[in-house]
Design a protein around this nucleic acid. Structure first.
Lengths: 94, 94
DNA sequence: TTTATCCATTGAAATGTTTCTATCTTTTCC
DNA sequence: GGAAAAGATAGAAACATTTCAATGGATAAA
């Protein structure tokens, strides 16, 4: 498991520190691991560019991984990043 | 282990999403688990009220625990909160 | 009891984040 | 090719966070 540096941990924390983005992650979980954007428009009461903005933050930190499917994009959780972040948190403990 | 709710996870993420606050946590680790404020004034190049502001965010989320010692306050990591947060993150994974 | 020290609070400036409308790009389907 | 659909981008308004100088409150030391 890769040792995560502080700057990366900071960015991941920031990406997780918003209710909309946590909601997106729980929707991915709910949809059994592949989420389409259209699922979010139904469940999140924000304009399309706002949702796009949040998805960007989650993909930039690689917490979720995008996959193009024609005109659509679907997303899945990236367990590896979560595990690395957990490793970082373990390292904070006494 | 307590199941952490989304709102709490959001607040903890926010508390962790700042370089100064991560630095404070690493100083606690470095000082072998009990950190005095004065150690921070030496190591962090910010005015006293700014450091105080960051410590407040970390104590409000209970990531660190304060203990009064006369005129001083010392801090220690709260492993329980970290573990609960890790549990929340595990729950996000597919 | 006076003074010094440690930390907290207030209020304001600078900066960063979230959200929207409008518009653009890319891809699909006719 | 032209129209429609799915996302992305730009720019601006609203809101939140970070930082500081100034000041206040509590405890310890003299």
């Amino acid at each position: 498991m890769a040792q995560m540096d502080t700057k990366t941990a900071e960015k991941i924390s920031k990406a997780l520190s918003d209710p909309t983005r946590l909601k997106i992650l729980s929707e991915i979980k709910k949809k059994h691991d592949w989420l389409y954007c259209v699922d979010l428009y139904d469940n999140i009461n924000l304009a399309q560019p706002s949702i796009c903005h949040h998805l960007k933050q989650l993909t930039e930190t690689a917490i979720i991984l995008p996959e193009k499917e024609g005109r659509n994009i679907k997303y899945t959780m990236n367990n590896e990043v979560i595990d690395d972040f957990i490793g970082f948190l373990q390292g904070l403990k006494k």
